[in-house]
Design a protein around this nucleic acid. Sequence first.
DNA 1: CGATTTTCAGGCCGCATGGCCGAAGTGTAG
DNA 2: CTACACTTCGGCCATGCGGCCTGAAAATCG
Lengths: 209, 209
Amino acid sequence: MRPENRPDGRTRPSFIEQARRAQIVEAAAETVAEVGYARASLARIADRAGVSKSVISYHFAGGKDELLMQMVSTFFEDTWAHMSERIDAQTTAAGRIRAWVGSQMTYFSAHRTRFLAMVAIVDGHRLPDGSRPFADGMQQELDAVTEILREGQRDGEFRAFDASGFATIIIRATEGVLGRWAEDEETDLDAQTTVLLDFIDHAIRTEAP
Amino acid sequence: MRPENRPDGRTRPSFIEQARRAQIVEAAAETVAEVGYARASLARIADRAGVSKSVISYHFAGGKDELLMQMVSTFFEDTWAHMSERIDAQTTAAGRIRAWVGSQMTYFSAHRTRFLAMVAIVDGHRLPDGSRPFADGMQQELDAVTEILREGQRDGEFRAFDASGFATIIIRATEGVLGRWAEDEETDLDAQTTVLLDFIDHAIRTEAP
DNA sequence: CGATTTTCAGGCCGCATGGCCGAAGTGTAG
DNA sequence: CTACACTTCGGCCATGCGGCCTGAAAATCG
């Protein structure tokens, strides 16, 4: 049986516990990225991690669902840590938009597997009731970008447009370019980032007099 | 046993055959749109269609794979028939880009279920060997848009940019806006289409002198 | 009408899945 | 060394899956 000391906050997670969880999460990501969400079974994940299925059940009492949710949460926090640092360093709205898009690109350029896994799970995973557990997070992302665009409009950096609609477009286009690169190794992501930033810049900036 | 007269081209598909195939395809689309690709089993599809599982096996000898491929093919042909008519009516590259984006929007605005189903299958379905069967179609779409953008650049309608990269952005942004609408019924798709066309227009048109 | 073909329902099979259990292995504190 | 908690393994289970078969119903046709 699994020790039940965590809910009391008594004992910290043991070293081996942290290591195993990280190892399993990584194996799960690789599996999902390679065979897709639908074919990513516990058996395949365990096999890739080099452990037995029971080890996953043991360390993730919530089963497959907890594993996948944990994986997305972990990867998202890493991604956001990378992004927010670069976004906050900017002093203009235009800079923050460029940093948002660019830092997302640079992060995932070093973590292609994580990108593929996150996308596959975010739009493939459903809770038992059929709902999609990551809708909230996507809404928050949208709201944040919308707010930056509104700031830029107030400061005269950007022209008049529907900020919420443009936020959707920018976010989806960014994910789209990443997706294209993730599927086709030939793509030069740095070059495509420049192209996307050029596209966005011309779409949102105040028009030349 | 199923009659084997089709390969010779002898007998045309019976009326009931056509009707059943259409009915099953529609039920499959509704099921996939509602519960997602991973949970869309033959049992659920048959149940929604109000028939037994065997009926699907009977009319789609290739099994689930043939059913899903058939569904995407059918829906894609419908979509493209709607789009190409409107695109070909345009005389300028800018018009064709607007028609591409706009007609895709108007088509799916009347076929939300089909959009959800197509997206779910296109990026969820894998062949037994693990490959993704719709990569070719997406590449063709990309090439076609790229060619329109290059025409516009030759004619001076568009400024200088990476046509292939911009094509990716335009296609993904369009799908993204559709996806946002498909998930959130509140969205006014007509308004968002206008917003997207405005975004694209500012990004690609020749700069004011 | 009867004969023949087409269409269908229900049951069944083999398989993979997610999850669980008991026994064994491993480390550690006293 | 011993006692004990933590970790792992292999095997097992119920469930749902896609696919198939059999026999009956329904349509078609001479």
